[in-house]
């Protein structure tokens, strides 16, 4: 019954939280832009996006611009809904403890 129950473990991480925040307000963001905003390494970002993709919270689309590979990310409906619930849970906890 605790409020903690609504906290989504997947979002309980700085980088994944950042990725979702960015995808909530941007339709589509590419790899380099995410990297730049979050200030993380390639490998680190890739592993966290994979985790979110597995949960079906984000969609990954790969394509080529000329010869350069281009990977774009967007949030799924499920992802957006889950993230909203997570934010509500956070707000709840803060309100109740202060």
């Amino acid at each position: 019954m605790g409020l903690i129950d609504n906290i989504n473990k997947l979002f309980d991480h700085r980088i994944r939280l950042g990725i979702m925040s960015i995808l909530m307000v941007n339709e589509e963001v590419d790899f380099n832009r995410l990297k730049e905003l979050l200030n993380v390494t390639d490998g680190n970002l890739a592993s966290h996006t994979k985790t979110l993709e597995k949960a079906e919270y984000i969609k990954i689309e790969k394509s080529f611009i000329g010869k350069k590979p281009n990977t774009r990310y967007s949030a799924t409906k499920l992802g957006k809904l889950s993230f909203k619930k997570h934010i509500e849970a956070l707000e709840h906890i803060i309100k109740n403890q202060t």
């Binding site: 925040s21 960015i22 963001v29 905003l37």
Partner: peptide, 18 residues
Amino acid sequence: SKKYLNDIIQIKDMMSRS
């Protein structure tokens, strides 16, 4: 709750910066 407050601040910051 302090950690969660930081989470909220980070969400807001990322949303506005991006």
